[in-house]
């Protein structure tokens, strides 16, 4: 995971220091408070406060490594974002197959498929269909 692709995901946090911490964790993997403070322009105490906040929001988690506490990013949010895109992608696959049925069916027939998709086989559909979802535009 690159920090720049993670940035929009965490933009909602709206704080540069916290975003920098998350970006650092994305870039460098698990870090201790000491390591994170080296990079930050704020005190260790402030970093601790930010981490606690991020942890509360489910963006980071900590694990003990000997005497040290190591902080890392939780990828759940990113996974959710990906699932969302996957769903929209499947909706488009389904819509494209319906468009195909329409435009390929009347090839040489001279009428639309409103009379029914006769002659078409289900093999033209590549995958399990997903119902199109109602959407709204700029309104």
């Amino acid at each position: 995971m690159k920090a720049n692709s993670a940035a929009p995901v965490f933009a909602a946090l709206g704080d540069e220091t916290r975003l920098a911490i998350v970006a650092r964790l994305c870039r460098s993997g698990p870090q201790s408070i000491v390591q994170l403070t080296e990079d930050a322009k704020v005190t260790r105490q402030a970093v601790t406060k930010h981490l606690t906040l991020l942890e509360g929001a489910g963006h980071v988690r900590s694990a003990r490594d000997g005497r040290e506490k190591l902080w890392s990013v939780r990828t759940t949010r990113l996974v959710e974002a990906q699932r969302w895109l996957d769903q929209i992608s499947r909706d488009w696959d389904s819509a494209i197959e319906r468009l195909r049925i329409l435009v390929e069916a009347d090839l040489g027939l001279g009428h639309s498929t409103r009379s029914g998709p006769g002659g078409l086989t289900s093999s033209t559909r590549s995958r399990t269909v997903v119902a199109a979802r109602p959407r709204r535009g700029d309104g």
Partner: peptide
């Protein structure tokens, strides 16, 4: 509902 695919 779409008119081209009864299943969908």
């Amino acid at each position: 509902p779409t008119q081209v695919d009864p299943e969908v």
